[in-house]
């Protein structure tokens, strides 16, 4: 058998690239394929993968906040029990007004994932039906998994610290006090925090 081990994976990429425009795919390694597509095509790609290519198992759905690039990245992870290949379908959503179509008519468990992403990132899934609260209760603030939600700040506002640790010292400062060293401001960012 001289054909390469990645035959199935390459076939999937080829299929998807030929069927959908503006879709780019890559075989990452054995049993892992990644494709990137525009968000409008997501429901079609997912249906196609499920019904035509055999990716009937919906493994996972995740979201990554690329705040510096001003978009969210949604990742749908599918598995084909027949070919034994994991397919990751990625798409980008604008951070200003994030919304995308709901896909829980294709897999009903996607409902839970979408509810959580809606709660944690504030992404609107058009047509999603489900209770607003999933994990958080009576939460009024910003969707907490976003990168601009500062947990340290939140803790200071919401909780009070137990007293007793005010005498904590800093090793570098202690040494600097004794030696009289003056660390310039532009160097301070390299000091240990």
């Amino acid at each position: 058998m001289t054909d390469n081990k990645l035959e199935k994976e390459q076939k999937v990429v080829k299929h998807l690239e030929e069927t959908f425009q503006n879709l780019t795919g890559k075989v990452v390694r054995e049993r892992r394929v990644t494709v990137a597509v525009e968000k409008e095509l997501i429901p079609s790609v997912l249906s196609y993968a499920k019904n035509q290519l055999g990716y009937i198992h919906f493994s996972h759905m995740s979201c990554v906040d690329w705040i510096e690039d001003e978009h969210f990245e949604l990742v749908y992870i599918l598995w084909s029990p027949e070919d034994k290949v994991q397919l990751l379908i990625k798409t980008l959503i604008n951070r200003e007004n994030p919304e995308i179509d709901n896909v829980d008519m294709i897999w009903r468990q996607a409902n839970t994932y979408e509810r959580e992403i809606r709660e944690m990132y504030g992404i609107q899934f058009k047509g999603l039906v489900g209770r607003e609260e999933f994990i958080l209760e009576d939460w009024e603030g910003m969707p907490p998994m976003r990168r601009d939600f500062d947990t340290a700040e939140y803790i200071k506002e919401a909780y009070f610290g137990r007293p007793g640790r005010e005498d904590a010292g800093n090793v570098r400062e202690e040494i600097v006090k004794r030696s009289g060293e003056e660390i310039p401001d532009f160097a301070k960012k390299y000091s240990r925090d």
Partner: peptide, 13 residues
């Protein structure tokens, strides 16, 4: 930095 006579900012560089 304490024993360097000049107290150079060693960890920083």
């Amino acid at each position: 930095t304490e024993v360097c006579p000049d107290h150079m900012h060693i960890p920083e560089y």
